[in-house]
Design a protein around this nucleic acid. Sequence first.
DNA 1: AGTGCCATGTAAGGAGTTACATGATTCG
DNA 2: CGAATCATGTAACTCCTTACATGGCACT
Lengths: 189, 189
Amino acid sequence: MSIRHGLLALLERGQMYGYQLRSAFEAETGATWPLNIGQVYTTLTRLERDGLVRGLPEHDGGQRPYEITAEGRTELALWFATPIAHADRPRDELAIKLALALTTPGVDVQSVVQTQRSATMRTLQQYTRLKKDDGELPWRLVLDSLIFQAEAELRWLDHCEASLVRFVPSTSPVPTAASAEEENVHERA
Amino acid sequence: MSIRHGLLALLERGQMYGYQLRSAFEAETGATWPLNIGQVYTTLTRLERDGLVRGLPEHDGGQRPYEITAEGRTELALWFATPIAHADRPRDELAIKLALALTTPGVDVQSVVQTQRSATMRTLQQYTRLKKDDGELPWRLVLDSLIFQAEAELRWLDHCEASLVRFVPSTSPVPTAASAEEENVHERA
DNA sequence: AGTGCCATGTAAGGAGTTACATGATTCG
DNA sequence: CGAATCATGTAACTCCTTACATGGCACT
């Protein structure tokens, strides 16, 4: 629902047409999450259908501006007033991956962790490099959010590795691997 | 793509049918992200279409087990070997919301931040309460991931508030009150 | 004349959610 | 018997992405 409300928020600053909305959105968030232009139009259509937005007659240059409605303002105010619950956030693919890696036969969990850490460290470095450059406040806060998250991810990966060494004997194949294969049955459903 | 690969990983432990897959998935991740049963079946259909999985003849009790194919094993190994890039993660709705709140007229950013912080702190407390209870390793790591992320979010919110007081004069139109209120105390998590 | 950007859309499909329909089995 | 749970599916819909089609306008 972030795009839907994001467009509403942009329209609260005044009338805008589709192409403008995309530019504005990407300007705010520093093009961190590029917004497909196609989605802007389909979302605008849905917003209009739901009465949150009103499409205006086509301008000279072929531009079709939209304006927010009273109902749209109410909806927007509600969005800003309501905290984002952790329950309705998307699944964390990395957490799922590592959790499953633990019980999947033939997967070297340690190497999964370390591969991910290298990648995350690289992106973290790119983020910190970006920080020095420019700086509109909104975009800087978004960037900081990414940095904080990446740092947390690194800490978590370290934490995982520390937990692992206590449970997984070693990276090297255990000689009792043959007997360990009897554990191949699926447990309780 | 997390469900697709998640199901593949579970099937690597042996044949399973749809209902079992959902239980197993939720057991691993502690029901943090409940998995809709309908999606399991549609995903299995797509996986079979793509040759990553093979549907077996119906069992006596009406259960239709699936098994992973060689191609599926390759795909799964690739998933585990490839780090998850920050680029193709879903948009962070909270970051977008705050970034837009800054430039949206009539929005009290400070209160948005504080509302969110209260909510995040509550869920963090729930998480830490959960930690004491049980403990399969995979689920515990998932929980730790959630905790680390929530803590990072709290730090970021504090950071946002600190940045705000320097740029937004104050909620009240009196400039002298703002400078007095600048050192708004928030001890970090 | 051609390249490239501005601007609006549509089509096709993946992923996910909610809801519904349908049976079998199990338990009080 | 009735209710709950197990088990498989389908339908409708939102959100999002990728790709395609189309036209205007500006610059070289």
